[in-house]
């Protein structure tokens, strides 16, 4: 039970990351509402968080904060990926905010947020 559980835990985060990315793409491709599409893009980005955190995970590791842990006394998870994820979250917040503001302007100018009804740019 334990061994199987460990193996399953080993693959599971990666499978979740791949699933999230593909589901986000599916949502983007079939979206009928631009706000929903922006949300789907955030789902795609969530897959990068899951992947990076899974890569940095160490069995039995604790948070890499050394205020109450003596360095070397016990395993810690990889702090580099956590820094990457933090940066990634900042980027994601910027992109999402900009996209949502564009959606607001689209709603004002086109009177719709359905991408199927936006037909100004073709060919």
């Amino acid at each position: 039970m334990n061994a199987i559980g460990e193996n399953a835990m080993g693959v599971l985060p990666y499978a979740v990351a791949g699933w999230l990315f593909l589901m986000g793409c599916y949502g983007l491709a079939t979206s009928r509402n631009l706000i929903h599409a922006v949300g789907c893009l955030a789902v795609c980005q969530a897959s990068t968080y899951v992947l990076l955190l899974a890569i940095g995970y160490r069995r039995g590791g604790t948070a890499p904060v050394f205020s109450d842990v003596t360095p070397g006394s016990r395993p810690v998870v990889d702090p580099v990926v956590q820094a990457l994820v933090l940066t990634d979250i900042v980027i994601g917040a910027t992109v999402t905010a900009l996209l949502l503001s564009l959606v607001i302007q689209i709603a004002k100018r086109h009177r719709t947020v359905d991408p199927d009804e936006l037909s100004e740019l073709r060919g």
Partner: peptide
């Protein structure tokens, strides 16, 4: 009307590409 639509398409597609690249960077790490 047109600039906001073009910018949104640009942003959605390029951001998605960026996240795909980040997944690849994660795998390399």
């Amino acid at each position: 009307a047109r600039p906001v639509q073009g910018a949104l398409i640009f942003a959605l597609v390029n951001s998605l590409g960026g996240y795909a690249a980040l997944l690849g960077i994660g795998l390399l790490y």
